Each structure stands twice: as structure tokens, then as C-alpha cells.
Simulated assay, not measured.
Amino acid sequence: MKRAFVFPGQGSQAVGMGKELADAFPAAREVFEEIDDALGQKLTSLMFEGPIEDLTLTENTQPALMGTSVAVARVLESEGNFKLADIADFVAGHSLGEYSALTAVGALSVSDAARLLKARGQAMQQAVPVGEGAMAALLGMDIDPVEELVREATEAGEGVVVAANDNAVGQVVLSGDKDAVARAIELAKEKGVRKAMMLPVSAPFHCPLMQPAADRMAEELAKVTITPPSLPVVANVTASQVSDPETIRKQLVEQVTGRVRWRESVLYMGEQGVEQLVELGTGKVLTQMVRRINKDMNGTAIQGPADIEAFLGSL
């Protein structure tokens, strides 16, 4: 059976994330210690104990989610006595989850990924003053009508608004200037969208307003070594596979302002014969999306020791 490992993005964080893994497995503890050392910060204390207000700060959330996902991957490998590449055909990650995917298959070191994500979180937060940007979820409207909606909202007034995340069938996220996003929400309601709501985020991710953050990440990514991954990575910005290190570097910069093409990424993996998506890390967001995108694909989430045992027993 063809399988892909996938890695969640921002929004899946929770106090206590990774603690069961660290308590049970040396391989997980090694990942968390490496991240703490790389950042010069006890990020693991924040992950295990909170407070949630500090964990939810973008600069903490991003390396924390990566660390938990990579810890699950390392435990799977050590307990199963295999490498991910032995039992899978692709990896992919949602937004920051792409860094988790690249780290899990050896393209980035854990230390470099942690430092990059700390910088990415800071740069994204600083790119747009708090209160000026916004993101909104549209439920019950697919990407083509949303793109038409965005065109109308852009023509009707000032400001940037784009389709930032094409997550699943009938689940698209807008991003941009607060007033422009609000205008798009009103248009969506007029067009009969099932639900349109502002999201509680601190910045308008994956839109042209993030260009200062993209420039910063170009500088940061230029400093690190990227090696060929042991499995092809399905990239957010193209929804197709990539293994060339310099292309990966370029696409990680583009990803900051570009659309997260998650629905297309899952469809692409299905076209390549993938039958099972295995989500590694905190939460089950990607697993819940799978059936809405491809009904023939099976999704499963691995978070803690019991999930790891069950998965290894199924192989």
C-alpha cells in the first residue's frame, strides 16, 4: 500500500503537546532537547505546561508543532526499526508543517528547522501591524467561486484579499487587509456561503502582505544546508513533488506569501497511488480533511504512545 506521512500546521497546538512522547521514549526526548538547545529557550516547558497564551505566540507555536511532529517520526523509526522512506512514498506538511516534513526526511536538521521556524514566526508577526490584517474561513464554497469573489472584493475597494488556504472541498481561507477581508465576507454571505467567519489569528498569513517576512526567510534559508530528502516532498506552493535542495529553498520562501494548496496536494498524492495519509504530531486536522478531498483515501493520526503502538501493529 502506498502511504504518505503528513504534518499539521498552526492551530493544532495545545498545552501538554509532546509530553507523553517525552515521558515514554528517549528518541522523543532527544528531539525536544535539541530544539531547546538550538533556541536557547525551554520551549519544552512551555509545550508541556503552558501557559497557552505564550505557546500560541507564532514564534513559539511553529517550532513547537515541528518538534512534536518530528518526535513522533523519530519514535516510529526507533520503535519500528525502519526509516520513514522504507514504508512511505511521500511526505507533505500544511504551511509550517512543510518544515516538519523536510526535517522528518532529513532535508533539514532539527536545530536548523527550529531556528528557521522561530525566525519565520517572528517575521510573520512583524510583517503587518497587529489589527491591520485578518484571515477568514469560508465554509461551503469551493476555490473557483472564491477566486471570483476575491476579484469582486478587490475591485469594490482598497486593500489586499486573497485565497490563502485551499484546504478541502468547501473549505477555503481568505487573508489580507482587515477591511478587504470583511468586504469579501459580506459578498460571500450575499452569494449564499454556508458559513463565513473571521479567524483568531495574529497576522494575515499566506498573502502578499507577508512579503517582508518572505524577504527575511530568504536571508535565513540562505544560511542553512538543505540536503536531498529521503522521500519526495509535496510542496505547498505547487502541489507537486520536489527533491532538489535549491528548489526546496526557493519554494519555502514563496510559501510565505503563496497559497497553501492542500486540497490539490492530497489529490496529487492520490493520483500517484497513495491510499493512506498518516498525520504525525498534534491534533487530527489533516486527517479530518482527507475524506472531504478524496473518499478513497484512508487517514489516520498518530499523536501519542497508544497511536504509535497501534500503527506499528498494523504494518
Rank of each mutant, 00 (worst) to 15 (best):
R3N: 03
P8F: 00
Q13L: 01
G16M: 05
G16I: 01
E20D: 11
E20A: 12
E20K: 06
L21S: 02
A24D: 06
A28S: 12
F32S: 02
E33I: 01
E34I: 04
K42C: 10
K42H: 14
S45T: 14
L46M: 13
P51W: 13
I52F: 14
L57C: 04
L57N: 05
A64W: 02
A64G: 04
V70Y: 03
A71S: 10
R74T: 04
V75I: 13
L76H: 05
L76M: 12
L76W: 00
L76Q: 07
S78T: 14
S78V: 06
G80D: 00
N81C: 11
A85L: 08
V91F: 08
A92M: 14
H94P: 04
G97P: 01
Y99L: 07
T103S: 11
V105P: 08
S109W: 01
S109Q: 05
S111D: 03
S111V: 00
D112Y: 03
L116E: 03
L117S: 02
Q122K: 14
Q122G: 01
Q126S: 15
P129L: 15
M135E: 09
M141S: 08
D144F: 04
P145Q: 13
V146W: 08
E147G: 01
E148Q: 14
R151W: 01
E158M: 09
V161F: 08
D166G: 02
N167V: 06
G170L: 10
V172A: 12
S175L: 13
K178Y: 00
K178Q: 12
A180N: 07
A182D: 11
E186T: 09
K195P: 01
L199D: 10
V201H: 09
H206T: 06
C207N: 10
M210P: 06
P212M: 08
P212R: 11
P212G: 06
R216Y: 01
E220K: 15
A222S: 12
V224W: 05
S230F: 01
L231M: 04
L231Y: 04
P232G: 03
A235W: 03
A235I: 07
T238V: 14
P245H: 09
E246V: 07
K250M: 09
Q251Y: 12
V256W: 02
R259A: 12
R259W: 04
R259T: 13
R263M: 06
E264L: 14
G273I: 09
E279G: 08
E279D: 11
G281M: 13
L286I: 09
T287N: 08
M289K: 04
M289L: 15
V290C: 11
R292G: 15
I293C: 05
N298I: 15
T300I: 13
A301I: 02
P305F: 11
A306S: 14
I308C: 06
I308L: 10
E309V: 04
A310L: 13
F311K: 07
L312G: 02
L315C: 00
